[in-house]
């Protein structure tokens, strides 16, 4: 190890892998659409964790109130006026290993339930998002696809 070239190689390897790690972690960042196509979710990073906000709704207006949809099923009554557009659906995901983010939650505005959630990246444009209750066996996996502005 006294050989400076060996040392150089070691450090290069170390930092390259750190970069790769960070890049892999940030692969999640972007705009995604669940299989039902009803919303578009932008995943971004706050601190060291990943969060996903609704940035687009197929039906933004509530058919009953004729106003923009709000989080009316939230179990916390004080928060039922939070607009769904801009709502953080995915919260607190941490990068576990290549293509896998864990320890997060996913919220279903349809019933006001928050599920434990893991995200697996099948390829750079496809996510398997599994929401579950307690243990992974009590869960359901949905396929999300990456969106981008169409190149001219």
């Amino acid at each position: 190890m006294k050989n400076p070239i060996n040392l150089f190689l070691l450090f290069t390897l170390l930092f390259t892998s750190t970069i790769t790690f960070a890049q892999q972690a940030d692969d999640l960042v972007g705009v995604w659409e669940p299989s039902n196509g009803k919303v578009r979710v932008k995943i971004e990073k706050i601190g060291t964790k990943y969060f996903g906000r609704i940035v687009w709704l197929k039906a933004p207006i509530d058919s009953v109130t004729n106003k923009p949809k709000v989080d009316k099923n939230n179990p916390d009554e004080a928060l039922r006026n939070v607009p769904l557009k801009g709502f953080r659906l995915l919260k607190d995901f941490t990068f576990k290993s290549a293509g896998e983010w864990t320890e997060g939650t996913i919220y279903d505005p349809e019933n006001g339930s928050t599920y434990s959630c893991t995200i697996k990246m099948k390829n750079k444009n496809t996510l398997d998002i599994r929401g579950y209750i307690g243990i992974s066996a009590f869960g359901r996996t949905d396929v999300w696809k990456r969106l981008e502005i169409k190149k001219q």
């Binding site: 705009v31 299989s35 578009r40 687009w56 557009k85 696809k145 990456r146 969106l147 981008e148 169409k150």
Partner: peptide
Amino acid sequence: EDFSQYDSYNLVDKAAKKY
């Protein structure tokens, strides 16, 4: 966010089949 920009977003590859 320019929220209106997401109207013009498109899937990068083919859409997941809808069920």
